[in-house]
Design a binder for these strands. Structure first.
Length: 149
DNA sequence: TGTCCCAGGCGTCAGCTGAC
DNA sequence: GTCAGCTGACGCCTGGGACA
């Protein structure tokens, strides 16, 4: 699987910018990257801004999470001796990995939903903008067309 | 009421990528 | 090379709507 077209891995770098001539909010989504901001997500200036022009770019930082309850830090590998201890350690590591991945998947899905919402908003804005431009074009055509009476 | 279908969410695995 | 994080893909579960 290649990443052509799709948001690149780790591309939680999403960007949007509010900018308007008529007060409408506009979203700027170069390629597949879009910026999302909500109360749960901390946005920080990204070092990748140079790659996307002058628009401010932000990288989503997931809220820092402490280890969930019930998770006990591992003993150092050097302190393990018996095969049973090794097996327990392997099991514990697996549980920890699964738990982290579980949380990562949730966060990933949340960001994806946010991204889709952002795109939908942008579509709505662009549709309105397009409609206005068409109307303006029609008006200008009326003004400029020679009278036929 | 029971059944079917669909959409959405979740957990897990596998592969990729960047950091070290 | 190893490790941790991210994300697409897959399968499963569940709730809700349509239908007989």
């Amino acid at each position: 699987m290649t990443n052509s077209g799709a948001p690149p891995p780790g591309a939680t770098i999403v960007q949007y910018a509010a900018q308007s001539a008529d007060g409408t909010q506009q979203f700027f989504v170069p390629g597949s990257q879009v910026v999302v901001q909500d109360e749960e997500t901390e946005l920080a200036p990204s070092h990748m801004a140079a790659a996307t022009g002058d628009m401010p770019t932000y990288q989503i930082r997931a809220p820092t999470t402490a280890l969930p309850q019930g998770v006990v830090m591992a003993a150092s590998p050097g302190s393990l001796h018996s095969p049973q201890q090794l097996a327990e350690e392997a099991t514990r590591k697996r549980e920890l990995r699964l738990m982290k991945n579980r949380e990562a998947a949730k966060e990933c899905r949340r960001r994806k939903k946010e991204y889709v919402k952002c795109l939908e908003s942008r579509v709505a804005v662009l549709e309105v903008q397009n409609k206005k431009l068409i109307e303006e074009l029609e008006t200008l055509k009326d003004i400029c067309s020679p009278k036929t009476d």
